[in-house]
Write a protein that binds this DNA or RNA. Sequence first.
RNA 1: GCCCGAGUGGCGGAACGGUAGACGCAGGGGAUUCAAAAUCCUCCGCCCUAACGGGUGUGCGAGUUCGAAUCUCGCCUCGGGCACCA
Length: 863
Amino acid sequence: MSGQTDARYQPQDIEPRWQAAWDTGGCFTAKADPTRPKYYVLEMFPYPSGRIHIGHVRNYTMGDVVARYKKSQGFSVLHPMGWDAFGMPAENAAMQQGGHPATWTYNNIAVMKGQMKPLGLSIDWGREFATCDPEYYGQQQAMFLDMLKQGLVYRKNAIVNWDPVDMTVLANEQVIDGKGWRSGAEVERRELTQWFFKISDFAGELLEAIDTLTDWPEKVRLMQKNWIGKSRGLQFAFDTVGAPEGFEALEVYTTRPDTLLGASFAAISPDHPLARALEGANPAIAAFNAECRKTGTTEEALEKAEKKGMDTGIRVKHPFDPAWEMPVYIANFILMDYGTGAIFGCPAHDQRDLDFANKYGLSVVSTMVPMSGDHRLPEEGGEAYVPLKSETVRWTKAFNWPEEATGEQAIDAAIDHCESRGIGQGVTKFRLRDWGLSRQRYWGCPIPVVHCETCGVVPEKKENLPIRLPEDVSFDTPGNPLDRHPAWRNCTCPGCGGAALRETDTMDTFVDSSWYFARFTAPHASTPTDPTEADYWMNVDQYIGGVEHAILHLLYSRFFARAMHKTGHLPAKAIEPFNALFTQGMVTHAIYQTRDDKGRAVYHYPEEVTLRDGGGYLADGTEVQIIPSAKMSKSKRNVVDPVAIIEQFGADTARWFVLSDSPPERDVEWTSAGAEAAWKHLGRVYAMGDRIADMPADQVAEQPGADADLDRAMHRAIDDVTRMIDGFAFNKAIAKLYEFSTIVSKTKASASAQKQAGRVLAQLMAPMTPHLAEELWHRLGGDGLVTEAEWPKADPALLVDDTVTLPVQINGKRKAQILVAADASKEEVEKLALADHSVQRALGGATPKKVIVVPGRIVNVVV
RNA sequence: GCCCGAGUGGCGGAACGGUAGACGCAGGGGAUUCAAAAUCCUCCGCCCUAACGGGUGUGCGAGUUCGAAUCUCGCCUCGGGCACCA
């Protein structure tokens, strides 16, 4: 049960020894070597929460496998590590326990680095940095200024969650059921002037370039496409009746102009200028809008909220018929950020509009029906009819297209029709909004501008960078300490030299993580990047991280790389910074739960629970409920501490296990049984290596042909493992390594053949279990370090078999199998299959109608 | 609510549209041992059968195909994201 059971395999002894050897050899120092191809492998850097998590172990082990594998293939490898060190948890810790966010953060970094080191990762620690290092964020400020100059940054008003009791801005996760997490006060939406990146300028380009990201997971590409959300539609203005001055027209955007004859109302966002304009004169509208603003700012909250509307009393005229008037509602589900913040409702062909129409007694008019089949019209109580745009339907209210047409055809025709009549124009819009980077918080990168009464908003001078965060701050009151730090806030205007105030907003931490990969190429350069280094190392060849970053982090990084290119900080080839992306799954663990006398759930740590007979028990014999495969979280206590695992079994066991049990893109369930099995296997390999090392060099094969058989198996293993690592199928690579170890342990081959096989086994295992591999390699007479050895190559001639077993099916059901020569013709195979006695019996005298022979695969007899 | 995934033995998982369950765990039987641990050999989806063998089976329901875990459509359940968590 413990690392001491097998006295011979002692990772506690082996692992530090080889780590020291790697350090001495400078094995992992990345060197820009123009004579060699480079390979840049990067795992998403961690937030320094305080302790490493088994998920980190899995993430970094995957990257390490790739890094070591590529190194052995002759690449000059860059495999760096750093810390995503700004963010709210440090401020929360300061509020709860006192102390300074910087102290907390740097302590955490030291602890986590100490926990990561024993894993034996092939990281170039010489390039380490934290995003909260002034050296890093100062360069970020320099880039901000360059981007400001290029027009990539601007200010506008935006809505935030405001806690009226704590007088502070809240993050979405700090709003719980519409209330502030600390104060419990009802959160309000408040408008602030904030900084934005013009990511929307790149919407089309970011969308089109997705097609070039062929080594990204298809699902991530799809998610990004949908997020950017390109749509073509019609933007036009309704003439209003009874609206206040200045609102004679109401601009709306619709992606379904083809359903314009089914319009029954117009709706505007509570944040629409018209809605605001009505507040003064109409207390009911003011109250309604205020109520709407209590909903959180997330799209999710808006979508899930009950759909509500209020009639403004204003009417709009249908663009085709001035006599046709429709009511204008304010509706809580219309987003001010999308389109024009105003829509027309077509209840017959939009379920949400139909629900709304039914609720407020508005008319429902179908404009199309299915080509065939039963159809209950929405106006007669049916559901909204929303066919795919590519589906051909029958139009009952077409205006200039055939009765039978697809939505796409109708939309194009409708836009043409409207444009020709001077009703609006066809426009392309994107769902993607500009990236708000302002945060009203202390622990982030200060935005390097000042506010001057004479000059307005003025960028800092580059020579004044970094604008450092002041250290003498306190967190005993909520809100941004920068706001109440006069010594820091008061400054000189870089423009006129007069008195000015510093910007107190800091940057979203997504900014920090949007370029760290570029900084790793020259982590201590006096400019954001070094052109020579960036040119050599970019792009990241393999990026590895959690799928939870599929949209925001990856999209922001893609934008930032473009912005960095525009400002001269990255070469053109780096505008798509990640050549290949791999998204790994989570590590999960069972939850052990009991109930207290009030029926509340009580959670227990894995080490408090003994498993036997399929059940789990506490020390006092109480049985616990086992909830399998839950995401690890501290509150559920279903966490395993990698440090304890490494102490007990060694890093190689931890590394082997996190790779072995699940495909890397899927979640893996941590089980102590699985970890022990991994440890036992490594112990067997170790013992086998010892035995082979002790064989007299002249010992001959005990069985004729054993050397040749072992050689074939070895080349098969090389081929399999190589392909599996290339394909990121680490679990399958490990299954093949299990098979190959079993073959080596049972072979009757000669000493020289066994030693050779053992060394190859060491090489194939080296990316996963590098310490054990070094030990094996060394004992079996390998030259130098296995870490520095060249990856073995399989001999293709030894991979082909001359005979092959073919299954024979009758009507798709397997009934027999036949052994045939690999190069047998279809006719021969068919003859052999039909002659087989099992096939004869299964046929029972029936005559085959057809025989399908797939060479090398299968025979199917159809009767 | 919207977007994106995933679902295969007791468990983690294998399987270019071609023998479903590789490999590992757990479990059964055996060897070794005074005994146990470790180790080694062996069996192992489910149902029927003494056995040979047969039937059935990849979340559910349809479909395409000589052949579907795999492709299509419709559901169910779970997970990720939804722009201020990182």
